[in-house]
Design a protein around this nucleic acid. Structure first.
Lengths: 349, 349
DNA sequence: CTGAAAGCGCTTACAG
DNA sequence: CTGAAAGCGCTTACAG
């Protein structure tokens, strides 16, 4: 037996297709009695309701919102902060009856979910400007919100006040008396220059760029010139591990990391170098991820409210979908001083 | 200007609609030269490729797989184990060019993503039998795989060997000399009986049921009758916290928890009761979540390979979609002894 | 309260 | 290599 459709039910009941459609989608458009009869027949023939694919085409909306992440879901979901963001977005969207679809990057055989999946809009999270997914989304003219990403066009943007948080973190180290400070970042070339700048294209308007700017502002005001080490990748990777290792052979007295994960990696490696944190080395993270307060020593870090970020992103997109006015959003940061920072050796309090 | 469609491009180039379709979807069906011309026009008018909604209807497939979770994404994503599962599923599906859509439960206003979102199949993770999402999925006759859930029909199932893992955990406590043991679980009534059994419906064939069976098998063989405390909910909640609190007023010497999260909660509360773990109270978790090895004391627990579970679930569903044969899968567990278990006071080693 | 008409954008055999 | 025909399953105004 072929799958039941609206027409199947209509024939069975002896009404037109759209009356059946109304029975499911606009109950006020027909008598309760007729509706009951239709629903009963539908149940009997195993018809679960209007097919979403047909409905999506006719209505011009799907009820689905896409999320593109720089990395594959496999990589992105190993990051507590990204997970928290996805959770908040999915929750907020669910409240508005939208479902979230996770879009992986394009593949060698030419598939690209950002191009091929039916959706009503998308959130671009922490993406490099030319990621295949981002390009496809823009070409489809889908309503978009970018979060911690290089802007694409005139879409609403949600960002952290990275520069301020970074500035406060750097100032905290300066106040403790540190002068030999290293910065640990991603998305830089071997010379420690931001990748996109080095490539002479696209303004450096991503989170790393803003954090570098914030750290730099505080440090240069104090006449401190930091060492910058980093990886061309987007997260802690083997290149970064090697460079941290090299850094700790001639350790600074303090290091500012672009994330808590990077900070934890530094602390782990410091242990291998017989450096005590914070006595021999102060370390400041970024994010205040769930782990930050639980590790030993508890991590001094720059807190962001990842739930607020996710909800702001979802709210912006929903506003866009509804034709409501939108605006860029900058979320606050807060320095959280715990036990991974202290004055450098030889500096009294 | 209206949005460009295949027809727009066709008119512009002077060919038929389907030749344009072929240019995008079946490049071998037309000359390279014509294809170039078509693609050039498409680019010029800002046509990003065939609309996924139209394509989904015509093809009868969407490239999207759904995931239904007992809780809202907001709740589910606070659980490391669930996140690990989603990550593994999404990764495996991405390899096969499917995207994963997160389906929240039905809402008061009658929306139900499991019924309303277009998809080719779905994975049911850790769900109660009558969850609205599960029901809707079944009614749609979608290809399904159930994971750690009560079976629905004859769909492939992926489960952990919970009973064996639980048995080994209980045996470990018995071997250490414990006789006063408590079990901490979810999905039970006030009398500590599994909810579904108490309701006289549905076999108790979920993870909690199997763990109870495994613990019970080892304990009853040793003539030990455990105290069972739990919540009717699906995870650590205030009811469970209160009952743990009451339990620790007259503490057993050891407790077997249904998850690492529950075990951590017990350890936290033990501290409040001036009970030392493991000296005064041994605690065993379940899952070996990322935190288990990092907390103090490191947690004795039953390890499961959550990546393997996610990949198995995705692989089963893909097989189903391809018409390949499928089979139920039971994944192994392994007792990991760390520092949260020890002999009870007064029992020499 | 119910239905005839038109259309959403695309693809799949099939014929030429 | 290209196109005319039929169809995927549904909904949206509009008329009666």
């Amino acid at each position: 037996m072929a799958r039941a459709t609206l027409q199947t039910i209509a024939d069975e009941v002896g009404v037109s297709r759209m009356t059946v459609s109304n029975a499911f989608s606009r109950p006020d458009q027909l008598s309760a009695e007729l509706r009951e009869r239709i629903l009963a027949v539908a149940e009997r023939v195993g018809y679960a309701g209007p097919d979403p694919a047909g409905r999506a085409l006719a209505r011009g909306r799907t009820g689905v919102i896409g999320m593109v992440l720089t990395d594959s879901p496999r990589d992105a979901f190993t990051d507590d902060v990204a997970v928290g963001f996805v959770r908040a977005v999915a929750g907020k969207l669910a409240d508005a009856n939208y479902s979230l679809v996770l879009l992986h990057g394009s593949t060698a055989d030419g598939r690209n979910p950002a191009r091929d999946v039916a959706m009503d809009g998308a959130i671009v999270y922490s993406c490099v400007p030319r990621a295949s997914g981002v390009t496809a989304l823009r070409e489809r003219h889908l309503p978009l919100v970018t979060v911690e990403s290089t802007p694409i066009a005139d879409e609403p943007r949600v960002n952290l006040d990275d520069a301020l948080g970074a500035r406060e973190a750097a100032q905290h180290l300066l106040d403790l008396g540190h002068r030999d400070i290293a910065l640990v970042v991603t998305s830089v070339n071997a010379a420690g220059e931001p990748l996109s700048e080095a490539h002479g294209r696209d303004a450096v308007d991503d989170a790393i760029g803003r954090r570098l700017a914030g750290w730099g502002a505080a440090l240069s005001a104090a006449g401190v010139r930091p060492r910058v080490i980093g990886t061309p990748g987007h997260d802690v990777d083997d290149i970064l591990r090697d460079r941290i290792d090299a850094l700790l052979d001639q350790p600074p007295t303090a290091v500012l990391a672009f994330s808590d994960r990077a900070a934890l990696e530094i602390i782990d490696q410091a242990r291998d170098h017989d450096l005590r944190v914070p006595e021999d080395l102060s370390v400041i993270g970024f994010d205040d991820s769930p782990l930050a307060a639980r590790v030993t020593p508890p991590l001094t870090t720059v807190r962001q409210d990842i739930d607020a970020k996710g909800e702001a992103a979802a709210a912006s997109l929903l506003a866009l979908l509804n034709g409501d006015p939108t605006a860029d959003i900058t979320l606050p940061t807060e320095l959280v001083v715990r036990a991974s920072t202290a004055p450098p050796r030889g500096v009294g309090r």
